[in-house]
Amino acid sequence: MPDRSMPQFPEPDTSPFWESVKNEQLSYQQCNVCNTVVFYPRYACSSCGSGELVWKDSKGEGEIYTYSVVRQNRNPAFADLGAYVLAYVDLDEGFRMMTNVVGIKNPLTDIKIGQRVKVKFEKQESGEFPVPVFELI
């Protein structure tokens, strides 16, 4: 997927996440008051409402919570791609993100829920940011 849709800015909540991605670092927020892990990025803690969320670095490893092999997408960036894997991945630090699992020979047979995965920062043909995707470990 050489030319994915890019996040659009200015957007203050998600900007630090994508600045980290530029440096090939996956990041998430944690509440300084109640320790809740918060993702996607936002202003207020989703448990206590505190604005004291601090950014943390993720090791980028986790497991596939669920997935779908997408066969049809009319979006031009994906239309010609063939089957690709959309997934929710549960990172070891306790957050769940939407992503793609890439580098699989046959996505119809070689992917399962619960498999361990590791982040990879995929360079794009155009666009400012690489995109965090995952590969099987």
């Binding site: 994915r4 849709s5 957007e11 791609l81």
Partner: peptide, 10 residues
């Protein structure tokens, strides 16, 4: 906040 975290994944 949400679309920026999902738009790249098709």
């Amino acid at each position: 906040w949400q679309a920026n975290m999902e738009a790249s994944y098709g």
